[in-house]
Amino acid sequence: MALPAVSLTLTPELRSKLEGWLSEDLGRGDLTAPALKGCSGHARWTAKAAGVFCGGVFVEPLLHALDPKARVQLLVSEGASVSVGQDLLELEGQASALAAVERTALNLAMRLSGVATATAGLVDQLRGSSVRLADTRKTTPGLRVLEKYAVRCGRGVNHRCGLDDAAMLKENHLAWAGGMAAAVAAVRTSAPWPAQVIVEAETADQAAEAIRAGANGVLLDEFSPAQLQDLVPRLRLLAEQRAEGPVVLEASGVDPAQLHAYAATGIDLISTSAPVTRSSWLDISMRFEPTKPA
């Protein structure tokens, strides 16, 4: 069955970032460019490891910054599984532009493909359940939008992209605000109506208190599967008795090797930073064919 397409809007801000990263590598100009003057070239990306491909959509804007007439043909879709030796995309244009864009484009795609590959590996552990795998705000500064895009390419879902997406009340918030009820009420009073309120609970009592206070979601932090097996049904029953309706129960601080056990507890969501913080780059090579006079 075909996977749903994953898309990302190339906003002016994102295009500016891409050009900035290219400029970082170019500096005052590629000193090898004179050797390639007047030549056109053809290049091909090939996977040197199996995984999930992500980042091909950024190659064309990077290349067009140096050669607006260059051509990029994607041979696989974003989020597609690829095998060793599989061709991923083809490029054609000024040889000097192809050589200059190589490292920036490859670095970006290898990093994002690594995140997508790690995400897919964890999602596979949840197969057969309705539990979704979500990312966190533990992302590389400047790369959040792209790393979260890579998580979607790996069939994960995005948690908050920023502090303005939803209110997540943690231990310090509760202490400074004077307790659970006061913290939730303060956020409810000032936040826009559609905003969700999530409470991070470190104990079963905190989780129950969060539900009574009207939280939309409870993040159960560092609970074992055995603890959740007992706690989740009790929290569901408690949520049924309140006027605010259902609550989303999320497990965090989990051992990635135990995802199947967590999924069996009846939670809705597992959030983890592992795909971003623990993933390796997916090795991709760029091979050039002999150049010819333009």
Rank of each mutant, 00 (worst) to 15 (best):
M1K: 10
A5R: 15
A5W: 02
T11D: 13
P12F: 05
L14F: 03
S16I: 00
K17T: 08
L22N: 03
R28A: 14
L36Y: 13
K37Y: 10
W45P: 00
A47W: 06
K48W: 11
V52H: 07
P61K: 04
A65N: 01
P68T: 10
R71E: 14
R71Q: 13
R71Y: 00
Q73K: 14
Q73L: 13
L75R: 11
E78G: 08
G79P: 01
S81D: 14
S81M: 12
G85E: 13
G85I: 13
L88Q: 01
L91K: 01
S96E: 15
A99T: 13
V101Y: 02
N107W: 09
A109E: 04
L112S: 00
V115M: 00
T117W: 06
T119W: 02
G121Y: 01
V131H: 04
R132M: 12
R137T: 10
T139A: 07
T140D: 08
P141Q: 09
P141L: 09
L143C: 09
E147N: 07
R155G: 02
G156R: 03
L163Q: 06
M168C: 06
A177G: 03
G179F: 06
M180D: 03
A181G: 00
A183D: 08
A183S: 11
A185R: 11
Q196W: 10
V197Y: 01
I198M: 09
V199I: 12
E202I: 00
T203G: 09
A210Q: 03
I211K: 04
R212K: 15
G217A: 15
D221P: 07
D221K: 12
E222P: 00
F223P: 02
P225Q: 03
P225W: 00
Q227M: 12
Q227A: 14
V232P: 06
L235W: 10
E240F: 04
V247I: 03
V247Q: 09
V248Q: 12
L249G: 04
G253W: 07
A257V: 03
A261K: 14
T265V: 12
L269C: 11
S271P: 03
A274G: 00
S279Q: 10
M286E: 07
F288G: 09
T291H: 11
K292G: 11
P293R: 15
A294I: 00
